[in-house]
Design a protein around this nucleic acid. Structure first.
Lengths: 110, 110
DNA sequence: TGTAGTGTGTATTACATAGTACACAAATGT
DNA sequence: ACATTTGTGTACTATGTAATACACACTACA
């Protein structure tokens, strides 16, 4: 999944596999294997560099690779009761509702 | 950190290291090393078993061990834009405010 | 004074993670 | 025709993760 996802992105950017590899500072053969899903998705750091080169949301790319950004992990780990509850509750709630809450929290309407 | 944390819990429960090890189905020497932080915290599965035996919140124990429950990870990974934003926004907000939001979302007051 | 239970030390292991290094073949450009 | 670029195949490696296995020494206790 991750492989085909970034291969498509790369082609849309008109970038060769080798150019991507160079920009990300990994071996071309590694990108080749990654794009065909012959190996597991790269590390968090490498995925983040890929997201910059391909100009794609890092959180989404990490998620496609089955990972979570370490700053999110740290936030959760620092207040586990709060965030565990929050995530589980929100996960049950319909998305549009959550989006509305988010907007209001952000706008300081509380 | 994790080690001293569970050692304290275990003593409070009046449990011997070996009894804990047996209940968790790992080697006593392993628990010994874990409790003195000579090795990294156990796997998610093992921490969850420890949390049951010691009757302590699993999310908190996982967090002390630097981990996040896989069900939370899956929730985030399925809707990365939503949850990444949510976590970052909430992380900036004061806790009491977040707790109030949580309560209201739960109570279906939206 | 054994023997049962306590915690610990040392050595080892299986598997996963995250890649590198380098050679090769096909297509493209000039 | 030749050089360059493109993607790929094969082999190898270093580090981390998550433990096991077993022997040892100390304390309690009956």
């Amino acid at each position: 999944m991750f492989g085909s996802y970034i291969r498509k992105l790369r082609k849309e950017r008109g970038l060769s596999l080798r150019k991507l590899a160079e920009a990300v500072t990994v071996e071309p053969s590694y990108i080749s294997k990654v794009e065909r899903d012959l190996v597991a998705p790269p590390s968090e750091e490498t995925i983040k560099r890929i997201s910059e080169v391909l100009e794609h949301d890092a959180d989404v790319l990490l998620a496609v690779g089955g990972k979570i950004s370490s700053d999110l992990r740290q936030a959760i780990i620092k207040r586990p009761e709060l965030f565990s509850r929050l995530i589980r509750v929100v996960n049950e709630a319909p998305e549009d509702l959550v989006v509305r809450i988010l907007g209001e929290v952000q706008d300081g309407e509380w």
